[in-house]
């Protein structure tokens, strides 16, 4: 991987981290209505996966989707505007944090329903296949989603019909308060995929290069074989499930271990410096990302509210 490529991975992880930290700050200032699900700690999976895709490859996302959205090319200004209920937001203030969609960059949307996007990704893949479009659909979902019936229906059909879907399970080890190990009978998520005849692999989801390389390989393989594939990307969320989580189901030692030892940004910075990337180059990226966030927030706060008219008409095309 070229140095430019690596710096791009770094830039994107940092953008996601700082974007969500900015949201936290806005939330604490009472600027945001509703709740949100932060992916702080999980940036490597969204970044590695989306940067390995082409613009015309599609993704489906989850309630914890800010990272996916940014990494697929979204404009942070339009995302902030969406969270603030502004007209310039991706969904004109109608969707909010949990429903941002950015069709122009191939993001078919975040989804508030656990496993809600799995069956949709299968339909999107069928549509690509029938239209002879040589792109793939990357379907993100959490470890919690694998216990919904729609997970099983989606995998089964994608496999039966040879559809170009890359299923990416972000296993952050909890579905809200439920530890994945207490929720997944048989213990293995990849085995479930294998049982549907889908080749699968489990990777370190906090190693951005490993994610990038695995997704790149899977993408090529899906294109050549026409068959779906499955990645379990093991990661960890630092923040509560949403804004109202007291974190009673896990220890602060566990959280600190992941923050200290496994943080995707820290690890990647360490690696880049080992590879003799100049600190100045990293600093330059950091300054650029910080400016982008600052300016995007400012512009979003100054942008006009979404008008109250036409809500009923807006329900139909």
């Amino acid at each position: 991987m070229s140095k430019e490529n690596k710096l791009e991975l770094y830039r994107m992880m940092l953008l996601i981290r700082l974007f969500e930290e900015a949201l936290e700050e806005m939330f604490s200032r009472g600027l945001l209505h509703g709740t949100m699900h932060l992916s702080i700690g999980q940036e490597a999976t969204a970044t590695g996966a989306c940067l390995a895709l082409e613009k015309k490859d599609l993704i489906t996302s989850t309630h914890r989707g800010h990272g996916h959205c940014l990494a697929k090319g979204a404009d942070p200004y339009k995302m902030f505007a969406e969270l603030l209920g502004r007209e310039d937001g991706y969904c004109r203030g109608r969707g909010g944090s949990m429903h941002i969609a950015d069709l122009s960059n191939g993001n078919l949307g975040a989804n508030g329903i656990v496993a809600g996007s799995l069956t949709i990704s299968v339909g999107a893949a069928l549509s690509l296949k029938m239209q002879k479009i040589e792109n793939i659909v990357l379907c993100f979902f959490g470890d919690g989603a694998v216990n919904e019936g729609s997970f099983h229906e989606a995998l089964n059909l994608a496999s039966l019909w040879d559809l170009p879907v890359l299923f990416v399970c972000e296993n952050n080890q909890y579905g809200m308060s439920m530890a994945s190990e207490n929720a997944v009978a048989g213990g293995s998520i990849t085995q479930r995929a294998e049982s549907y005849g889908i080749k699968s692999v489990s990777i370190d989801g906090n190693d951005v290069e490993e994610v990038y390389e695995t997704v790149s390989k899977c993408k090529e393989k899906i294109k050549s074989s026409g068959k779906p594939m499955f990645i379990e990307s093991v990661t960890y969320r630092y923040r509560g499930h949403s804004k109202s989580d007291r974190n009673l189901y896990r220890t602060s030692d566990e959280i600190n271990f992941w923050k200290e030892e496994k943080d995707p940004l820290k690890r990647f910075i360490g690696k880049l410096t080992e590879e003799k990337v100049e600190i100045d180059e990293l600093k330059k990226v950091e300054v650029e990302v910080k400016n982008l966030i600052r300016e995007s927030v400012k512009k979003a706060l100054e942008s006009p509210e979404s008008p109250k008219t036409n809500l009923e008409e807006d329900s139909y095309a």
Binding site: G93, R94, K308
Partner: peptide, 16 residues
């Protein structure tokens, strides 16, 4: 309520 899905923005939510 309006014949509309619930919007996320506060000022739109109160409109519905």
């Amino acid at each position: 309520g309006l014949h509309s899905p619930m919007p996320s923005a506060k000022h739109l939510e109160t409109t519905v």
